[in-house]
């Protein structure tokens, strides 16, 4: 799928992107894609290249651009930096913090503890599908580690 095709996913069923005969309004979608890649600095030759030819960071920028386009109230970011290089991680982090600053709720799901410490105001741990703890980001990593693996507070003493 090309950049323009990717940029409208999830919004492709709206009236503004519908042409006649069940067709998509491709010109409008391409204009949207051009705006998104300009605003989010996605490095691509044009909007008609395959998204798979972009680097991981640029792909993620495109997804961020697409998902932020509608001013969401809640942003759920699932492993947003997995597999990205340092520069791209920095970009994604900045964007997430900006979203927070703009008053949006951001739910970050990540397996990277560093990332969670870096970005979070509150940290929730999950174990076997249940929330096992809620922490402030100044908590020590081993407390979080314990809660993540099903231990309870106070168990540290036993070890």
């Amino acid at each position: 799928m090309t950049l323009w095709e990717n940029s409208v996913l999830g919004r492709h069923d709206r009236k503004e992107y519908a042409g006649g005969l069940g067709a998509l309004a491709i010109k409008k979608i391409k204009a949207l894609a051009a705006r998104l890649i300009r605003d989010f600095d996605v490095r691509a030759r044009n909007v008609s290249v395959d998204a798979s030819t972009l680097s991981g960071g640029n792909q993620q920028k495109l997804i961020l651009a697409r998902e932020l386009e509608d001013d969401p109230v809640l942003l759920i970011a699932h492993q947003p930096t997995r597999g990205l290089d340092v520069g791209a991680i920095e970009f994604v982090w900045t964007q997430l913090l900006e979203q927070k600053g703009a008053g949006r709720a951001v739910l970050l799901i990540s397996a990277e503890l560093d990332e969670i410490y870096e970005l979070s105001d509150r940290i929730l741990t999950l174990y076997e599908g249940k929330i096992t703890g809620e922490f402030h980001p100044d908590v020590a990593p081993d407390v979080i580690g314990l809660a993540m693996t099903g231990g309870r507070r106070g168990d540290e003493a036993v070890r």
Partner: peptide
């Protein structure tokens, strides 16, 4: 390649998760 239906067909074919 031009209709919404075709777009959706290709979307589920190329990545059902994203679709």
């Amino acid at each position: 390649f031009r209709t919404r239906l075709g777009y959706e067909i290709r979307a589920i074919g190329s990545s059902s998760g994203s679709a």
